[in-house]
Design a protein around this nucleic acid. Structure first.
Length: 509
RNA sequence: GCCGCUAUGGUGUAACCGGUUAACACGCCGCCCUCUCACGGCGGAGAGUACGGGUUCGAGCCCCGUUAGCGGUACCA
């Protein structure tokens, strides 16, 4: 049952999908889904220099990753220029527009004069007779087609779903250009024309479009076509309340960055949904279905929202704090709570990208092992990429020992001989279970009159390269008998190889 | 220059469209759990609402001014 509601997301292809754009797409999508409407994708690609196929593909890929499926489109604005010009001709013929022959220099001089007089500059061009127009055109004087704002007292009034009632007097609206002197249409016209062609019922866009809405409504009314309802969304700014941009913030302002960094799409949507909207009941974790059910313009804020990025010009104090803290927390929440059968394919894709995936993880016992391992280690991770970095040791033999971890837990010189001995003790265990390994390790420690913690923490570094992780006896099981013992021996040998140099140095001094 | 919007704990937001304990989450602190680090459980600190006026019995919420931020104002999109 289609409600007749039609909304659209209409990005310009700039080379990346902006976080703010993704948020606008999301609110359009939520509104369409909540009200059983139609979500239209339109690419506003009239800036032909910037609108490369790669730039378009980036937007489409970003929307697909987010799972924001469109029902119609993508439509390309550049394919409709003739229709836009036709609309302008229609407005000309009906007297709602005129040819304006003023030059840019003349306009600039007027603007500066008004500024000097501290007056607003509201351009009103001379409206010529057809004979005058013909004469100037015959002389080859270029002209712009401008909308003829009514000269009467009056105002454009409309109700914005977020900002409420808006009024702008005709006297405060300049005669704005519809067509450039080369005949190409301007954004104001193209944007409205496509909304009309697509029979858009609700224009849901960023707040930067609010001030231009009275002009667009004048076009609708001059054409005598149905007007959409407007909802203007708060912008997304950085922690210093400056605009988010790739130029200023780098990749962190782009949706692709979060995909590459191992964000879960639902978590990312949840994070950006809460920028400028709240469900009304203090909930922070919302599934798509939750958001669809709860979405309401009454809870969309007029306040510009903040996506808190670390300063771009300084190295990160903590590499794990690479973006908005709340977004990171949400992604970690999703990692911990997502049903395993949804998480496993995501981890597999990440391991494949990192070159760590092995077919054995997908067959027989390996499948069960893979699921178990992911389930145990996910609790300490914030992104999917963490499985390939902090969790690398579980999936591959090539992993780095964290220098800090080694400094902290491999200091005792006796470990050089004890770790291989521990391997000798564990390797013949009849059963390789957490309980069996624990019992054997504690006996091993007791026999040497040291605390078990010494071996537990050393083994953690030897087996995983990290000083932190799941319970160590579970780790022994996950890494397996063969790999555990090999890594204990390798670490012992490494310590042995390092120790003689230290003693020689001590003897010299 | 002119017009519009915004300003609430360290961070992000909320607060019956004025009612008399300013809420939630993250982060922070303490305890429990604990082989490490997490997760989880229990508890705690922290804003009196940018600044200055006004209206009102009563204002975070209404009005005025200031400061700051954002947006619009182009033959930009």
């Amino acid at each position: 049952m289609n409600s007749g509601i039609r909304v659209r997301f209409a990005p310009s292809p700039t080379g990346y999908l902006h976080i703010g754009g993704a948020r606008t797409a999301l609110f359009n999508w939520l509104f369409a889904r909540k009200h059983h409407g139609t979500f239209i994708l339109r690419i506003e690609d009239t800036d032909r220099e910037r609108s490369t196929p790669e730039a378009v593909a980036t937007i489409l890929d970003g929307l697909r990753w987010l799972g924001l499926d469109w029902d119609e489109g993508p439509f390309y604005q550049s394919e409709r220029l003739a229709a836009h010009r036709q609309l302008a001709e229609h407005l000309l013929a009906a007297g709602h527009a005129y040819k304006s022959y003023e030059t840019k220099e003349e306009l600039e001089a007027m603007r500066q004069a008004a500024e000097a007089a501290k007056q607003p500059f509201v351009f009103r061009g001379r409206i010529l007779s057809p004979a005058e127009e013909a004469q100037l055109t015959a002389q080859g004087i270029p002209y712009v087609v401008r909308f003829r704002v009514p000269r009467t007292d009056g105002a454009v009034t409309f109700h914005d779903l977020v900002h409420g009632e808006q009024t702008k007097r005709y006297a405060d609206i300049e005669d704005f250009a519809l067509l450039r002197s080369d005949g190409s249409p301007l954004y104001i016209l193209s944007n409205a024309a496509d909304d009309i062609a697509e029979r858009v019922t609700h224009v849901i866009r960023g707040q930067d479009g609010l001030a231009n809405t009275p002009k667009q409504l004048l076009i609708y009314r001059a054409l005598g076509v149905p007007e959409p309802t407007f909802a203007h969304l708060p912008l997304i700014l950085d922690g210093k309340r400056a605009k988010l941009s790739k130029r200023k913030h780098g990749e962190r302002a782009t949706v692709q960055f979060y995909q590459a960094q191992g964000f879960i799409p639902d978590a990312f949507l949840n994070a950006i949904a809460l920028i400028g909207w709240s469900p009304g009941d203090n909930r922070e974790i919302l599934s798509r279905e939750d958001m669809i059910a709860a979405f309401d313009f009454a809870q969309v804020s007029r306040t510009n929202g903040i996506f808190n990025l670390p300063p771009a010009d300084q190295p990160l104090a903590d590499p794990r704090q690479f973006t908005d803290p709340k977004a990171l927390w949400l992604n970690a929440e999703y990692l911990r709570t997502l049903p395993l059968d949804r998480l496993l394919p995501m981890v597999q894709a990440q391991l494949e990208t990192a070159g760590l995936w092995k077919p054995a993880f997908a067959t027989g016992d390996g499948q069960a092992w893979f699921a178990r391992t992911v389930d145990v280690i996910r609790e300490r991770f914030r992104t999917l990429v963490d499985f390939t970095t902090y969790g690398r040791a579980y999936f591959d033999d090539t992993f780095d020992i964290d220098p800090e971890a080694a400094r902290k837990n491999l200091r005792d010189p006796r470990l050089a001989t004890w770790l291989p001995e521990l391997a000798d003790t564990l390797e013949p265990l009849p059963d390789w279970t957490a309980e069996a390994v624990e019992a054997a390790l504690r006996d091993f420690a007791a026999a040497r009159e040291v605390k078990a913690g010494l071996f537990i923490n050393a083994a953690r570094v030897a087996l995983t390269g990290q000083s932190v992780g799941p319970s160590m006896f579970e780790v022994f099981v996950l890494i397996g008998r063969e790999r555990s013992c090999a890594r204990l021996r390798a670490t012992g040998q490494r310590l042995m190889a390092e120790a003689p140099a230290s003693r020689d140095a001590a003897a010299t001094s």
